[in-house]
C-alpha cells in the first residue's frame, strides 16, 4: 500500500514551519528524508489564503521533503495549489480535521495513526503524521517468512538502507553519513560508523547488534543515543542496543 507523510499546517508562517520541521527531521531523519508529503490545510480554515504555495514548496524541499499534494484545499485556492505544481487531494482521502488531532485511521487510508514519537514531538505550527505500514484491517495476508534483508556491500555516506517489515543484516561497514533502518532488528557484522535505527515503526523489542560501535546515532522505536552520549567503554566494542524503560541501553556482547 502506498503511504504518505501528512503535514498538517497550523500556521502560515513559513519560517516557523521550516524551523520546527528541521528539528523534527533531525530527530528522525530516516523517516523524512526525500519523503513524499501531503500538506493538509484543514486546520488553517480561512487562514490558508495567506499561504504562498511556491514558497511553501521551496521551504519543504529545502528540508529534503517532497511535497506532492494538498488536502482540504478551499475552492478559491485550487489554482494557486496547482500552479505550484502540487496536486489537489480529494476527499474522502482525508476527512475534515477534528480539533487538530491526528488523522483518523478509519477514513484516512493515506495516513494512519501516527507513530508514538510523532505525537510526542508535535510542534506548534505543524504536526506530522508518519507513514505507516498497512493497517491490520487492510494488511495483505502475511507472506511466508522470506528471511531478513541482507546487504553485503558497504553502506556509504549518503546511502539509506531500509528493511521494511523486516530484520536487516549488514555484512560490511556502515560508514559515516550512512543510515541503516529496519522495522525489526538490525545486525551489523562490521563497524557501525553511521546511523542505525531498529524498530522504526515502533517495535519496542527490536535490537541493534554490531561488531564495532563507532556510530553517529543509534535509535530504537524513537528513542535514540547520539555519538557523544555513547559511554567510552563501548567505543569500538561489539555491542547490542535495546530499549529498557523507554530508553536506549547499550551492553557489550
Amino acid at each position: 500500500m502506498a503511504s504518505l507523510t501528512v503535514l498538517r499546517l497550523r500556521s502560515t508562517d513559513l519560517a516557523l514551519i521550516e524551523r520546527q520541521l528541521r528539528v523534527k527531521i533531525a530527530q528522525l531523519p530516516h523517516l523524512f528524508l526525500d519523503a513524499p508529503v501531503l500538506v493538509d490545510l484543514g486546520a488553517l480554515g480561512d487562514g490558508a489564503a495567506a499561504l504562498v504555495f511556491g514558497d511553501l514548496v521551496r521551504a519543504l524541499r529545502s528540508c529534503k521533503l517532497v511535497p506532492v499534494a494538498v488536502a482540504n484545499v478551499p475552492d478559491g485556492l485550487r489554482g494557486a495549489v496547482t500552479d505550484a505544481g502540487l496536486g489537489v487531494w480529494q476527499p474522502p482521502a482525508l476527512g475534515r480535521t477534528r480539533g487538530g488531532g491526528s488523522p483518523d485511521a478509519a477514513d484516512a487510508p493515506a495516513a494512519e495513526t501516527p507513530a508514538p514519537e510523532a505525537q510526542a514531538t508535535e510542534t506548534a505550527s505543524a504536526d506530522v503524521a508518519l507513514p505507516t505500514g498497512p493497517s491490520a484491517a487492510v494488511a495483505p495476508p502475511r507472506a511466508p517468512h522470506a528471511g531478513p534483508m541482507v546487504v553485503s556491500k558497504p553502506v556509504r555516506g549518503g546511502q539509506i538502507v531500509y528493511a521494511q517489515n523486516n530484520d536487516l543484516v549488514v555484512l560490511a561497514p556502515v560508514n559515516s553519513g550512512a543510515q541503516v533502518i529496519a522495522d525489526g532488528h538490525v545486525h551489523i557484522y562490521a563497524p557501525l560508523r553511521g546511523r542505525a535505527v531498529a524498530g522504526a515503526q515502533g517495535l519496542a523489542g527490536a535490537r541493534i547488534f554490531c561488531q564495532k560501535l563507532e556510530a553517529e546515532l543509534v535509535a530504537i522505536s524513537g528513542a535514540y543515543i547520539m555519538a557523544e552520549e555513547i559511554p567510552a567503554q563501548f567505543h569500538g566494542r561489539a555491542v547490542q542496543i535495546f530499549l529498557e524503560g523507554g530508553e536506549c541501553r547499550i551492553a557489550a556482547l
Binding site: 558497504p154 556509504r156 555516506g157 549518503g158 546511502q159 560508514n175 559515516s176 553519513g177
Partner: peptide, 9 residues
C-alpha cells in the same frame, strides 16, 4: 568522507 559518498554514487 566525501570519497565515501562518491563511492556510494
Amino acid at each position: 568522507r566525501d570519497s565515501d559518498r562518491v563511492l556510494g554514487l
